[in-house]
Amino acid sequence: MSSFDLSVITQNIPWLWAGMQLTILLTLLAVAGGIIVGVILALCRLSPWWALSAAAKLYVNLFRSIPLVLAVFWFYFLVPIVTGHPVGPFYSVLIAFVFFEGAYFAEIVRSGIQGVRRGQLSAALSTGLSHVQALRYVVMPQAIRNMYPVLVTRSIIIFQDTSLAFVVGLTDFLTSANIVANREGRPVEIYCFVAVVYFLLCYAAEAGLNLSKRRVAR
């Protein structure tokens, strides 16, 4: 193996940047969709209707017991059958992430709501607020504050997990890098570069989160 050759990276920056754009897009859409699915599931789980709550629980437990790769395979196979025509890897992967991550977000939202002390609801009700008002003005603001660090952490995990789109050949950052590595025959430089980029981005995101947590904590 000859010495470390950085030019193989600089020459392929446009390729890698295109991959990174797809990774970021996929992450943003997956987080947004996952949160929507998660909130719906959490409300179902906390609802007084037994069947709805049980169904949501089954959904969450099932998705949380399988690997993401399997979910990606599932949806890559299922989506074309359900829609009746091929949709390409991007939409399959996106749908897989939304449904899969929805199960994780559901647990985050649920424990955020349940983490608010019961006395807070009593206090709000005892001043005459209605149930909806108590949830809206007293419980939810606290729940969101409880949840938000976990939501951000989960989003960082999703950013990392989008690299698993590799298994169906979606040209995200990692897959683009993989193509370059094979074409140029320089896996060492390329994979090290990929690792460093992921590390720096995730490290920065986590540092930002810690900074904002310190600011919020009173």
Partner: peptide, 16 residues
């Protein structure tokens, strides 16, 4: 180990 995706770590161990 926490800030690099597991799949990238797999590649690092196996190919690099």
């Amino acid at each position: 180990f926490r800030n690099v995706p597991l799949i990238v770590q797999m590649f690092l161990w196996f190919f690099v």
